[in-house]
């Protein structure tokens, strides 16, 4: 079944393999029309369908059956049909619904971007910036959890978790013994290792990279720093782990390597998973062969604030809700 099918997204037509999802078809076109994906991850089987940020409108089902689909659909889990027509950013209905999803994702979110390690590379922050409402309509107490150390390398900040399940799929598919999962149900669900068992698997560090928000972070990230003060550089080493090819991004501040991550593509997904030795234990320039500065997409939040500007993160500024929620924290950032 390798025949090609045609699909039109926001007026742009592309030919893709049969069985491709709308989201992946859009990624082949690229640019602004790519729906944001907070839970889907192409390298993780079974991911997607949960966050609902990638919703689009199908105005024509296919050449054979041109009826539109009655509801908005999750583009990450809907496969294209020949002749399908899809609207993403050209549909006000989609944009409104997506703003609704973002509002809902934020009601229980701590909005603590100023103190979050993920700030600057957080998908939720980007989305909140693009779709954010000026004022939150949620007036109840937010759900809170204790911060937890999962072993000595990873920290879980459950308040920030959007339950995308990516880390669970990673633990299940990339590491060989899953000790990490989801407990409880509904909005009490939480990521947990239950008895705070150290996640000491060779590949466990990858959960940090797949997390779209700052819920899973690197405890070895040396001196807390804002990513936009750091300079990413692609590098590699001859890793002797059979499944790791040692290709990484080093995040520098001055001459120091602050942290090591897998390389990410333009959709924010890691290109290849890396082992814990490369990630946590190789923090000297001498460990690595430097390639070149990492290319950062112009549209990303990191790019707009890249390198040494000392202003607070600009996405915080225009959003009153974020500002109000973070008044104290914003003051603190001055100290960085």
């Amino acid at each position: 079944m390798s025949e090609k099918v045609k699909v039109t997204i926001d007026g742009i037509t592309v030919e893709v393999d049969n069985g491709t999802t709308i989201l992946n078809a859009a990624r082949q076109i690229g640019g602004d029309i790519v729906p944001p994906a907070m839970c889907y991850y192409s390298k993780l089987q079974g991911s997607g369908g949960k966050c609902r940020t990638c919703i689009v409108k199908v105005t024509k089902g296919s050449e054979k059956d041109p009826r539109p689909m009655p509801k908005l659909v999750a583009s990450c889990r809907t496969t294209v049909m020949d002749g399908m027509e899809v609207l993403n950013i050209t549909s006000p209905e989609v944009l409104e619904a997506r703003a609704g999803v973002v509002e809902i994702l934020l009601i229980n979110h701590p909005l603590d971007c100023p103190v979050c390690d993920q700030a600057g590379e957080c998908d939720l922050q980007n989305l909140g910036y693009e779709h954010g409402l000026q004022k939150t309509r949620y007036e109840f107490e937010r759900r809170t959890f204790e911060r937890i150390d999962i072993g000595d390398k990873i920290q879980l900040h459950m308040n920030r978790c959007i339950l995308c399940y990516r880390c669970v799929f990673t633990a299940d598919q990339i590491t060989n013994k899953r000790v990490h999962g989801i407990l409880n149900r509904g909005d009490h669900s939480e990521i947990s290792t239950y008895i705070q068992q150290a996640v000491d698997n060779d590949f466990s560090g990858n959960v940090i990279d797949v997390c779209p928000v700052g819920a899973l972070t690197d405890r070895t990230f040396r001196f807390k720093n804002r990513v936009w003060f750091t300079k990413p550089v692609d590098a590699h080493r001859d890793c002797d782990h059979e499944k790791c090819n040692g290709k990484v991004t080093l995040w520098y501040k001055g001459a120091d390597v602050l942290r090591v991550t897998a390389r990410k593509d333009q959709f924010g997904e890691v290109e290849e998973f890396i082992c814990n030795t490369c990630r946590f234990d190789k923090k000297a320039t001498a460990d690595w062969v430097i390639e070149h500065p990492t290319h950062i997409d112009d549209t990303s939040v990191i790019a707009s604030n890249h390198y040494e500007t000392l202003k607070p993160l600009h996405v915080i500024q225009p959003n009153e809700a974020l500002q109000a929620a973070n008044e104290i924290e914003l003051h603190k950032t001055v100290k960085y």
Binding site: C51, R52, G100, L163, G186, S189
Partner: peptide, 18 residues
Amino acid sequence: YHHESCGQCSPCREGTGW
């Protein structure tokens, strides 16, 4: 419904509680 939501997708997980 809040009590019974499985919590997989965000509109239902968060919206029912709201």
